[in-house]
Computed example of a mutant assay.
Amino acid sequence: MTLSTPIDVKAAKAIGPLPAGHPPVRIGKIGVMLVNLGTPDGTDFKPMWRYLREFLSDPRVIELNRAIWYPILYGLVLTTRPKKSGANYALIWNREKNESPLRTYTRAQAEKLSQALADMPNVVVDWAMRYGNPSTASVARSLVERGCDRIVAFPLYPQYSATTTATANDQLFRALMKMRAAPAIRTVPPYYDEPVYIEALARSIERHLATLDFEPEVVITSYHGIPKPYFEKGDPYHCHCQKTTRLLRERLGWSEKKLMITFQSRFGAQEWLQPYTDKTVEHLAQQGVKSIAVVNPGFSVDCIETLDEIGREAAETFHHAGGENFAHIPCLNDSEEGMAVVEAMVRRELSGWA
């Protein structure tokens, strides 16, 4: 069936010609949409304000009552945070493409996946952001317009959380609610314990450590945190992170003292998942540990939280507390190991369709 094949040629002839200006009905393709968290369009105040407003207005991200949260959001957060966050983004901004690294890497993943799936000519690969551009809704519409009556959506979060995977799926289904002829949907489940993912992490770590001129005494797996009450309400994220680190520890043959787990990026006054990355890094240095490395297994690609918060802020914290050697191990990104994970997960979910 080709891209321009009508749903039913005979039925269409019986009904008569489509109204003037009506787009042709196209089916027979399968869309694959890689979905990442999101990115601002620029580092200036306005694009940062738009991005942060969309992100921090999501009720799955901030579960406070709107009557309590919105005055804080609009009266305090959105008047001060855009400038500060924009300055941090400017430190890691891809000047050549005028975009954030997260957008650069996610696009590269989609392009390489498309090449890897060349044996499936009816599969169309694209990429989208939950917050910011290209929006999930616009990419979903584009895939349908290109003839996709089935879509595999891949939220690029190895460990499930309602604040990430669920909100990405929410946004896709909100887009489908506005479609007259909505496509069938499959969503890729979390892959925190998939052998291909654990192996990719292990190889990436081993490869990067081999390039260092020092041997870390401790390697930290630092995950984005969530508020502790979210975990207590049943979010499985903490358990997924723990299992990823345990499996990675077993694969590398390291002890719990050698490969630690921490949580970063806390926001607001309430307690988040512990131990905190910044406090742990500082404590290790104060204890006399001179060399550490940090890896971010929960991020599919490098972004502000890895390149700046870990690569700069955590490194400064460690050095100021007496540490000497600090290394940030890059995310899987569009590396050979990273693409092996993406391709394996997508091919599995395409089974029976392509």
Results as ranks from 00 to 15, higher is better:
residue 292 I to Y: 05
residue 241 C to S: 08
residue 311 G to W: 08
residue 199 E to P: 00
residue 301 V to D: 01
residue 263 F to W: 13
residue 291 S to I: 02
residue 306 T to E: 11
residue 213 D to C: 03
residue 217 E to P: 01
residue 252 L to I: 09
residue 272 W to L: 07
residue 242 Q to L: 14
residue 228 K to G: 00
residue 221 T to S: 14
residue 296 N to T: 15
residue 266 R to A: 04
residue 201 L to N: 01
residue 297 P to D: 12
residue 295 V to D: 02
residue 277 T to F: 10
residue 270 Q to R: 10
residue 197 Y to D: 01
residue 293 A to N: 05
residue 215 E to K: 14
residue 266 R to K: 15
residue 256 E to P: 05
residue 259 L to E: 08
residue 262 T to E: 05
residue 243 K to C: 03
residue 200 A to M: 09
residue 228 K to M: 13
residue 300 S to I: 07
residue 228 K to Q: 14
residue 192 Y to I: 01
residue 238 H to F: 14
residue 245 T to E: 09
residue 231 F to W: 13
residue 193 D to C: 09
residue 203 R to H: 12
residue 310 I to K: 07
residue 268 G to E: 06
residue 274 Q to P: 00
residue 279 K to R: 12
residue 287 Q to C: 09
residue 211 T to H: 10
residue 307 L to A: 09
residue 235 D to I: 04
residue 283 H to C: 01
residue 195 P to T: 04
residue 289 V to Y: 06
residue 197 Y to K: 03
residue 189 P to G: 12
residue 252 L to P: 02
residue 193 D to A: 14
residue 300 S to R: 11
residue 301 V to P: 00
residue 306 T to I: 08
residue 298 G to Q: 07
residue 194 E to P: 00
residue 247 L to D: 05
residue 243 K to M: 14
residue 197 Y to Q: 02
residue 228 K to C: 00
residue 222 S to Q: 07
residue 231 F to Y: 13
residue 234 G to L: 10
residue 189 P to L: 09
residue 220 I to C: 03
residue 294 V to Y: 10
residue 188 V to C: 14
residue 230 Y to I: 12
residue 203 R to M: 11
residue 210 A to M: 03
residue 277 T to I: 09
residue 248 L to T: 06
